[in-house]
Amino acid sequence: MKGELPAGLLDVLEREIERRSLLRGSVSGVLLLWLGALLPSGCRGYPSPPVSLHFFSDEEYAIFQAVARAILGLEDEDVDVAVEVDALASRMGGNVRRDIRWMLRIFEHGTHLFDLKGKRFSRLARADQEQYLRGWMTSSLGARRMVFRALKLLSVLGYYGMSETWTTIGYDGPWLGRRTEERRFSYERPVPLA
């Protein structure tokens, strides 16, 4: 469903990144925030997205696309999870949007710091991307596990919210629209307060 409001689970992301105060409370969190401030932004060499974006920059779009594809194990280059999430993120609050940007930046360039790799995340081969993601997922630092969970949640929302993906998992979709059943309760019409 392109352009729909973020699903329930999206809120975890909002919370996870809004609570950088939580990150500040742990040694690993402080380290992450500090590193985030040092890391580069505005790097060159990102491809232009095929559509106009509401929230992501070209760079963020490319990073998120790579993240989502690696998390979801997608081989199909045609599936555009980032454009779905771009629409979702554009409806989130200002702080959250700022923090998504921060999170993507630290994730993209953290390769140099956490894995001592010579390339940023979106330029790594898929196997290396997965290995790097696994490092976040199983890190002994709670803050890194939280960032992983946030990225996974966004990816899952963007992808499995699309009805086109349902056949791949054997989900037959809502009854509404394919079965007619009676609604039982007669709802009263609200009366104007003033």
Partner: peptide, 13 residues
């Protein structure tokens, strides 16, 4: 994706 924001506080999570 439509119903969690409608029916739940903070979209249920």
């Amino acid at each position: 994706e439509e119903m969690y924001p409608r029916l739940y506080r903070e979209r249920g999570t």
